Amino acid sequence: MTTATHTLPDAADGNTGGPYALSHLDALEAESVHIFREVAGEFERPVILFSGGKDSIVMLHLALKAFWPAPVPFALLHVDTGHNFPEVLEYRDRAVARHNLRLHVAHVQDFIDDGRLRERPDGLRNPLQTVPLLDGIEQGKFDAVFGGGRRDEEKARAKERVFSLRDEFGAWDPRRQRPELWSLYNGKHAVGEHVRVFPLSNWTELDVWQYIEREKIELPEIYYAHEREVFSRNGMWLTAGEWGGPKETETVERRLVRYRTVGDMSCTGAVDSDAATIGDVIAEIAASRLTERGATRADDKVSEAAMEDRKREGYF
């Protein structure tokens, strides 16, 4: 008589059991690679949204893995608000040159200059990205657009599927979300519609950083502790700049900070931190009880439904 044996999970390496079990990072990577390849097979003109932020960097890394040794078969698209951090733009351009990629840039400033958009009284430009984004998708005739959104970031993003259908106006209707049982993705869409694709949907902020550590992925230095001139507004440390800060009543001071997420200078707050290495950052995130967007994004504090309202209009 044979007695069945069971291998217990190994907490040290994250295995879920058995000698051939994948670690949780391997499982997430495999899922994301599968999504990239599925899109390559289903769509004619996919594009990757790439800003030089950590999630889009990880997404590009996964795309490079998915098609290696062939080049990534997609172009990149960035919506530049005009208030971006110089360190992030410099990283974006280096990444494009290093991997010989095609980059399309939609400039919010162009839409302000020709009257299609108006500056907001609060100076925020992140909410102004929707129109340039939709215009860039239409101009490029892109039928699938990869985004780095994750479900753990914000409650509206938690409603998303991996494949998110957008109508002919780029709008999102949560009631039109399709089931995705057994990792089967439905990319069917009518002429004029497109699909947003989120390969990192099931990742958490901690997963992203653990993967960055494992894969030795370079990031802009803005993600690690550094001294920076900042001022306090609405409970956040914002970077001083020509975008509209600080006001006369706001005092600039030099602090040791880092950024958990990066939008642009008008909406992204820094956090006090001495986390100068990946290991330090992972330990800091593991102890945090606030999501990165909840802690540092002014554009999500406009209202309780700010993100969902923008998504319905065409934002990510």
Rank of each mutant, 00 (worst) to 15 (best):
L62N: 02
R233A: 03
W209E: 06
R150H: 08
N126G: 14
F111V: 01
V262G: 07
L117R: 14
A305C: 04
G170E: 00
F231I: 13
R118Q: 15
G18C: 10
D299Y: 09
R92T: 12
G147T: 14
T3Y: 04
R196G: 10
M59D: 00
W237V: 03
S232P: 04
L28Q: 04
A270S: 15
M1L: 11
E154Y: 04
P179E: 12
D152K: 08
G136P: 06
R258N: 12
P9T: 12
W209N: 10
P73I: 09
D167M: 01
F146V: 13
K54V: 12
A97Q: 14
D93H: 07
A270P: 08
N186R: 13
T277Y: 11
D114L: 00
A275P: 09
N100Y: 00
R293P: 10
G140Y: 11
D13C: 14
T2W: 08
G53A: 10
R150L: 14
S56A: 07
R178L: 05
S303N: 00
E248Y: 03
W182Q: 13
P121K: 08
T277L: 07
L165E: 00
R92S: 11
P246F: 06
N100M: 02
I285E: 03
S32T: 09
I57N: 05
H189W: 09
F231V: 13
E153A: 04
A286C: 01
A75I: 04
E308H: 06
R161F: 01
K159D: 03
R98I: 07
F74K: 03
K311W: 00
V47P: 08
W209I: 12
M265G: 06
R289F: 06
